[in-house]
């Protein structure tokens, strides 16, 4: 879809400006020092300013030239995949390595439109066995198989 402005440039310009402001604001409490005796805040502030400036250039360019809208966003995949990863981080200690891994694999399989219950279950089983064989048995990683919530330690 063509638009009068290049909305990808406009949006990325805005994103960079926002990040520049965020990081610039974060350097507020840091001692600046001088160019000769730089404090811990000097380099970060210069870079944050530069990022904001570059964002502004991209934004202005985007307003001047026509371009395309970003194509459709895969919201379903965004939510499910991120959720699966976060779940692994949350579950690996209380639930243990293998249960957390299995649930994450199964959940992330839901992100596909070609999801079938059988394939996903099979996939989960294969991954759990594989991870157990390689990482626990083979490499001896110190990861608890079952966490305290499931009767392990």
């Amino acid at each position: 879809m063509k638009t009068i402005i290049n909305s990808r440039d406009v949006l990325s310009g805005l994103l960079f400006i926002a990040l520049g402001l965020l990081f610039g604001w974060q350097t507020q409490d840091l001692p600046m020092g001088t160019a000769v005796r730089m404090g811990p805040g000097y380099f970060p502030l210069v870079l944050s300013g530069l990022l904001g400036l570059l964002g502004l250039i991209i934004l202005i360019n985007g307003l001047r030239f026509p371009g395309e809208m970003p194509s459709g966003i895969a919201w379903r995949a965004v939510l499910i995949i991120t959720g699966a990863v976060v779940f692994f981080g949350f579950g690996v200690r209380p639930l243990g390595f293998l249960p957390a891994l299995g649930i994450s694999v199964f959940v992330s399989a839901l992100a596909s439109r070609l999801f079938t219950f059988r394939t996903a279950l099979l996939n989960t089983a294969v991954m759990v066995v594989f991870a157990w064989a390689v990482f626990i048995k083979g490499l001896g990683l110190p990861l608890p198989l079952l966490g305290p919530w499931l009767g392990g330690y």
Partner: peptide
Amino acid sequence: VPYHVMFPAIIAFCCIGVYS
């Protein structure tokens, strides 16, 4: 390997790798 089978495995390895 069909992608819908492969990507959950990739996610699993990413999680293990990053955690370890």
